[in-house]
């Protein structure tokens, strides 16, 4: 969760890795990509922290063992002013799930596309772009995907998008969820 927690030097990192298939997998990958930090979370779950500028190189390396890109999850950390982009990878041969985490600033949210590694990333990137406004350089189909253009411009899954006030502005009178005293909202 917290990046600072994992900022330990490499020697400690290596000793922390357990002697299991997950530990060996992480060790092999870290050996090829020294800029990344890796750890084992539990059985069949491993985790990598990668700086945003090297994410494409790292995923290209990782795609040899992790054949499938299951999802690109974005978490909006509003207080820190950062988007956390989590590439969820699955290795069919090893049976291990990997979180590849990277952080990018909210104001200048740009990442290279991974469509050339996994063509399915096109859909995930379109979705992440639509809901958070992250620009994936090289993806030709960014734009309104699931939403209408009006909602698309707001990037609704950002934490600073206030849903209640938006719904009130659009639907106005229809939006009636007051209690009997007409003072409080009822959920």
């Amino acid at each position: 969760m917290d990046m600072n927690e994992n900022k330990t030097n490499e020697k400690v990192e290596e000793t922390r890795l357990p002697d299991t298939k997950e530990g060996k997998l992480v060790k092999a990958l870290i050996g090829k990509a020294p800029y990344a930090e890796g750890s084992v979370r539990r059985e069949r779950r491993v985790e990598f922290h990668v700086p945003a500028e090297r994410i494409h190189d790292f995923l290209e390396l990782a795609s040899e063992t992790f054949e499938m890109l299951m999802q690109i999850s974005v978490v909006d950390w509003l207080k820190e002013g950062e988007f956390e982009v989590v590439y969820q990878l699955w290795s069919v041969s090893e049976g291990v799930h990997a979180f590849v985490r990277t952080r990018i600033p909210r104001e200048d949210a740009k990442l290279p596309t991974v469509m050339d590694i996994w063509p399915v990333a096109e859909t995930y990137e379109r979705e992440a772009h639509e809901f958070f406004g992250i620009i994936f350089k090289g993806n030709p189909r960014l734009g309104p995907f699931l939403l209408e253009p009006r909602e698309y411009e707001k990037h609704p899954l950002r934490k600073d998008f206030n849903m209640l006030s938006y719904v009130k502005a659009i639907y106005g009178d229809d939006f009636d969820r007051y209690d009997e005293s007409k003072t409080n909202y009822v959920i």
Binding site: L147, E151, M163, L164, Y166, Y171, F175, R177
Partner: peptide, 18 residues
Amino acid sequence: INGGVYWDSYNVVKQLDK
């Protein structure tokens, strides 16, 4: 009728009768 569970959703029409 009134949005149901999606009463506060940004993408659901609240009162179809309109």
